[in-house]
Design a binder for these strands. Sequence first.
DNA 1: CGGGATCCAGCTCGATACTG
DNA 2: CAGTATCGAGCTGGATCCCG
Lengths: 125, 125
Amino acid sequence: MYQKKIERTLDCGVVLTKEVLHGKWKSTLLHFIARGVQRPSDLQRAIPSATRRVLNIQLNELEQHGLIGKTIYPQLPPKVEYNLTSLGESLLPVIDAMEQWGNEHRATLEPLLAANPNAQAEASA
Amino acid sequence: MYQKKIERTLDCGVVLTKEVLHGKWKSTLLHFIARGVQRPSDLQRAIPSATRRVLNIQLNELEQHGLIGKTIYPQLPPKVEYNLTSLGESLLPVIDAMEQWGNEHRATLEPLLAANPNAQAEASA
DNA sequence: CGGGATCCAGCTCGATACTG
DNA sequence: CAGTATCGAGCTGGATCCCG
């Protein structure tokens, strides 16, 4: 996503995947869409911590990245549904692996994450 | 990593994993350490796109998160080696899944990623 | 060789309000 | 219900220099 002048080797493939998943809620969105939560308002309800604005931005990016598809029903009130594309589905194993690992090590990680605000900012304080 | 007032549900485990992997080079670092690249200078050489500063910062975070261990040999010149902890090793399936997916879909993704600078900044231009 | 400090630009995200 | 615009704050990472 960022990177400036340096060439873009995309080193090991991991970087590529990270770029696709970059955005605070993208992987979560995929996770829920995969589970049948397809409408914006439902997604919003599923991820209350995020704003509609951010959700929309990341939804758009996911769409542009070809991971999800969007269906607009020209109704009143408007109705929109998102769905995984085959590319998006191919990413599910990764998401699931993350999901599983996160859940498995939650007990171990939460204290560590909490205790580690951020290195750089701390230094300058 | 960020998040302010809203409670920290860590929704689906994915979020947790993402936090651990947060940092541009962390997953890449894990990837290489897993492959036997253990010394700072070697890692630096393996990931030339990153600065030593950032590498160190993220290495420290990985260590504090319990994903890697650090061995300091009190020599002259100094010698340091990083290694995966069992927690770090347990994350390898995830990294590998990312690695694999990224490589498999590289051809599809690169054009899309390139064509999609970022939604928000564009809007304000 | 390894590590840290400073300075600084860029990006991401949250809050809020508004339109169709 | 869906989507966007603006404002602002925070964090991340790059460049560079210096110390053990």
